[in-house]
Design a protein around this nucleic acid. Sequence first.
DNA 1: CCGTACAATATGTACGTACATTTCACAACG
DNA 2: CGTTGTGAAATGTACGTACATATTGTACGG
Lengths: 250, 250
Amino acid sequence: MTLDRNSQMPLWAQLETALKTRLDTGEFDDRFPTDAELVEEYGVSRHTVREAIRHLNSSGILRRERGRGTVINRSEFEQPLGALYSLFRSVESSGATQRSLVLGLGEDMDPVIAERLGLASDAPLFSLERIRFADETPLALDRSWLSMELAGDLLSSDFEHTALYDELARKCGTRPDAGWERIAPIMPTPEQRKTLTMRRGEAAFSLERLGTANGLPIEWRTTLIRGDRYRFVSNFTAGTAPSMTATEPD
Amino acid sequence: MTLDRNSQMPLWAQLETALKTRLDTGEFDDRFPTDAELVEEYGVSRHTVREAIRHLNSSGILRRERGRGTVINRSEFEQPLGALYSLFRSVESSGATQRSLVLGLGEDMDPVIAERLGLASDAPLFSLERIRFADETPLALDRSWLSMELAGDLLSSDFEHTALYDELARKCGTRPDAGWERIAPIMPTPEQRKTLTMRRGEAAFSLERLGTANGLPIEWRTTLIRGDRYRFVSNFTAGTAPSMTATEPD
DNA sequence: CCGTACAATATGTACGTACATTTCACAACG
DNA sequence: CGTTGTGAAATGTACGTACATATTGTACGG
């Protein structure tokens, strides 16, 4: 398949479509081509190849790893969303008069979470639970777990006024640099509903996050966001997401 | 503020941070600098400027408009999410044995939706309602509205096997090229729950989408996705989202 | 046999240039 | 006075180059 240099569609968008088609056929199941190979094959510059891959990347299909190559994101029903990584940050930085209230700070034990953090199932965990306010009204309920060995020094910190990651970096010398996030719609339990002063029948977002540093998991976090106070909104244009008009199945 | 060329942090990431800081102070409230101005001011190449702006863009802070300039995304509580545009597509392309069942196809009237589409409140609307299956089990409930004047020719189409946008392009010569999308968590009504064969107490995603072509709204769509069958997942790394480690408020 | 060192590979960063396309303002024209 | 045309401004696309950095495999030496 060759590209049409007279087409209205940008070269990189054509290339993106072509690559997506070939991905669907399973042609790259063992190995995705390198930049140089695609440059050679399609006769375009590396810049154009990267632009195409950047878009496949941001739509969660591919992932690039420096020194290793471009790998295909395999997942079944859980659809990766690329730049959704900013989801949590967007909640954090939603403006308004931000404030948080510490509900719990101390030691906890949980075999499931301990295993997620790569610890023995009876390992002691540092736990921090907070309510996030925006405009004086509860917006989210947030709980983090870290290894007590790593975060023990944080037991005496004041988290009403200090960010967890900043404190972690300052006292423990580390901070999540990667990880994953997952979002689901749920019905809050009566207790959660009461804590967040939600009305009955109101649903909520449930966010789960595993934060890693240097490839090792260091933080597990769950966040519950009031559904009546929050929406995630996205603008799309042919300019920023041209693959959409070309490949949107519907 | 000047950039440190000996820093470990890439130039573009430093520039991103610098620009974000200046954005926060409101310095650019009237006008965001052009590429050329930033090239001049920071003494970097336009490539680097674009890389920085690309990241601000994908985190929903800025929006670039060809021929016009770079503008700041203003929104209060509804946080834009950049590449979340692929949200709907990800549902569509979630694989499995995809199938849809047409529940309704015909004329409808709705003053609110008509207004959203820029029509008179009593204008007749084309309406299409479908159930989306994945693996023989209902996944989503989907309803679209278009102006009857535009989409009248689609009344006789077979949407069990044909995509709406393809049919729209073929018969009506247009197709959404931009728009916006919004996501919320909701409790389905008993009727919706029954249609999607959901258990009691299970929440769902509610997606709303306005699709535009050439700047004019042409489609309003609502989608209900089963919460027990779907998750949105995102991987983040310092490599693909370095601003995160730098600016994560928590 | 194991570990270190080095080379090959592949992506990341950063520079440069040129032209295309869209938008907007303003002048010229009918 | 309105319409059309033209040019300036700004981002989009596309090419080129060079070097940095992370990963992996291999060869060499103890």
